[in-house]
């Protein structure tokens, strides 16, 4: 009985062990600064165009969706406030994380997966390098710092997209009012929430990608499976963690 639970529990345990080692290595020698820089470039700079593009459109579409509802209540002046709250608290972090998960959880899993099936990981260990130190920890550091930065940029460009839609296309409100309400709507707690989320999502994306990559078996086919699995798992976890963090912030007293 309960045999069907054995595999997922074993996986979870392996994941926690990997996560523990990856975090512990942050403060241990040797540090592979070159690898951190390369990963930061691949993940941060590499994801920039797609993150900006989707950020812009999500802001614009939010403004468009809200325009109708708000004008029914004669509150179309509030559009900046709505766009900024949704972007900063939810849409920015989650959309950016999903994009980075699609781009980098898969990228990490396929890279580490091919290294695994071609025995490069074994070769590393044979030559005296800890693969977690050399491969996992740099990706963890790079993703968890780059994702908040990408999210900030995505939030800003989204607000700008909302502004173009609301003030230039639909002429719902003045530019002054848009930016003032957008700015006033946010308190410090929102900003903390909006940065905590991508930081945690970054950890998830990196660790899931590495975990799926490092446990790849079964040749090139296995690499394909690992890649898909990494994106799906990371994306689902982004939503689950998002709900948990939101729950914590909603029930927190105002600061």
């Amino acid at each position: 009985m309960l045999d069907f639970l054995k595999r997922p529990i074993q996986s979870l345990q392996d994941f926690v062990v990997l996560a523990g080692k990856a975090f512990r290595n942050i403060v241990r020698k040797p540090h592979y600064f070159d690898d951190i820089a390369i990963q930061a470039d691949v993940i941060g700079v590499g994801s920039l165009p797609i993150v900006l593009l989707t950020g812009f459109f999500s802001g614009a579409v939010m403004a468009l969706q809200m325009s109708k509802a708000l004008s029914q209540y004669g509150a179309s002046g509030q559009v900046g406030q709505i766009v900024s709250i949704t972007l900063v608290r939810e849409l920015g972090p989650v959309l950016t994380a999903l994009l980075v998960s699609g781009r980098n959880a898969s990228g990490i899993a396929s890279e580490l997966g091919s290294m695994k099936v071609t025995e490069q990981i074994d070769a590393m260990r044979a030559l005296g390098t800890d693969p977690i130190q050399k491969l996992v920890t740099p990706r963890l550091i790079a993703t968890s710092t780059m994702l908040p930065l990408l999210t900030i940029l995505s939030d800003f460009i989204g607000l700008f997209g909302g502004y173009l839609m609301a003030c230039v296309v639909l002429k719902l409100t003045t530019s002054d009012q848009y930016w003032t309400t957008a700015y006033r709507a946010l308190d410090f707690q929102d900003v903390v929430q909006g940065l905590t989320k991508p930081f945690i999502f970054g950890i998830i994306v990196a660790l899931v990608g590495c975990f799926e990559g490092l446990r790849t078996t079964g040749g090139t086919q296995g690499v394909g499976r690992a890649t898909t699995e990494a994106v799906v798992t990371a994306s689902v976890w982004v939503f689950v963690i998002d709900l948990i963090i939101t729950r914590i912030f909603v029930s927190m007293p105002a600061w």
Partner: peptide, 23 residues
């Protein structure tokens, strides 16, 4: 432990199947 194994492995060379070069 893996750390201690690193020392012993310094005295062994291994050619992996297909070479396992870092690409």
């Amino acid at each position: 432990k893996e750390k201690a194994l690193f020392e012993v492995r310094q005295r062994v060379g291994m050619l992996f199947q297909e070479g396992a070069l870092f690409d």
